[in-house]
Design a protein around this nucleic acid. Sequence first.
DNA 1: CGTAGATTTGAGTTCTGTCAAATTTTGTGG
DNA 2: CCACAAAATTTGACAGAACTCAAATCTACG
Lengths: 234, 234
Amino acid sequence: MKNTLDVVSQQFERQAVRIATRKRQSHPLAPQPNETVYLIRKGLFLARIPMPGDQHHILSILYPGDVIRSNALRPLEGADILTASETGEAWRLRWSAVEALAREDHGLECQLFDSMADLAARLALHSAITAGLTGDERVAAMMIELALRTGKETHSGLTFEMPLSRIDIAEYLALNADTVSRIASRMRSNGLIAQSSARDHLACRSLAALEDACPLAPALRRLHAAPVQPQLAI
Amino acid sequence: MKNTLDVVSQQFERQAVRIATRKRQSHPLAPQPNETVYLIRKGLFLARIPMPGDQHHILSILYPGDVIRSNALRPLEGADILTASETGEAWRLRWSAVEALAREDHGLECQLFDSMADLAARLALHSAITAGLTGDERVAAMMIELALRTGKETHSGLTFEMPLSRIDIAEYLALNADTVSRIASRMRSNGLIAQSSARDHLACRSLAALEDACPLAPALRRLHAAPVQPQLAI
DNA sequence: CGTAGATTTGAGTTCTGTCAAATTTTGTGG
DNA sequence: CCACAAAATTTGACAGAACTCAAATCTACG
């Protein structure tokens, strides 16, 4: 996982429209023409697509530093990104402008290529998780992802953000919301997770125990474990 | 869907290692370092990852013109591409070489960006299909994809390639092989599909009827319907 | 023509989805 | 700070879709 935030932000600073968002605010990912790019600056976002019958499917959780180009979700009409955290910040750009910058700056070009490969890797892993694992394993996978991305050591163990509702989790993991609830209850009674003092947060006694509950934990670790914490460059 | 084959092939001609493959031949997608890129030239390939318990998950069917960079499947150890057709041809390159060429040739750079967005779009749609649709709808989705990509009008209807075994289909659609068999039998008795004279081919009376059986058919059409047939440039 | 491998199909099981009722949490105003 | 209403979550009972296992059938190929 490369941290694109530092490298990319400086180049984009002039071209970008800054957007401060509140929880549950949606921003469209319109396909071409007028293709847009979002750079996530702060907070967690969800990349969503509408599904038949008033449902959604959440393709990925987006973290600060992620760059998403609307063409990457092109065939899926109505795709958007949704703020999951209480507040977030994203920068909106035109793809044409991003591309022009990339042509001038080789470092930026590399970061964009890597960032797009990273999105593909994330989608691939997510596909493997929802396609090949049981409900319990999928929920464990999501907890591991959020623990690796946002976890902090506290007195009650590794505490991490859980800004998704039961319905969000269900749409992310291709499960039913009731089933998610059942699985979470089971994990609570097994001692795998515990309610944190802070709202929207969970705590886990031992990340290793969570990882034991998910066969794809090594892949999650390779993708989400950050060698360094992202630093806001501007 | 942009046709990258023409544009990309000419640039890559000197750098590429040409590989002629037979059915079921596997080529590794090794992660960095020594990152590789494959350009599909002829035949259908499957992008696979190993799953716990001797299974595989097929992430995508690859068609001529597709470019796949091993980093796009980075966290998933053991990923490979598998020849699905009787014979195929792929070109293997170093990512560093591809990137160097892209820096010199703006058209190539655009094609690479679009090709990577296309892969992401394919993974996203596939994720939506396996996550949100019933078994019957998933099988219909795969038939629509192959019909749009390889279909040809014949006296017995639209005939298309079906180079995947039951197990391949199951691994692509996140179903059990037995279930795939049951669904295919049902579609045959409903007249949706018929065995073609040629082996490894199926025929469908009406693509519209297939599309009625799959809620995500419009997205499949947007992604896979080719405005022009790919032309081999070299 | 016979064998090895793949596919089909049946019977029974399991996991997840559906629906509804009970409970908890959240937000608002006194 | 408390009370209340609205929303979200939990949980039980049941139904249904898909999985597992095994036997029968078909196909490819020597």
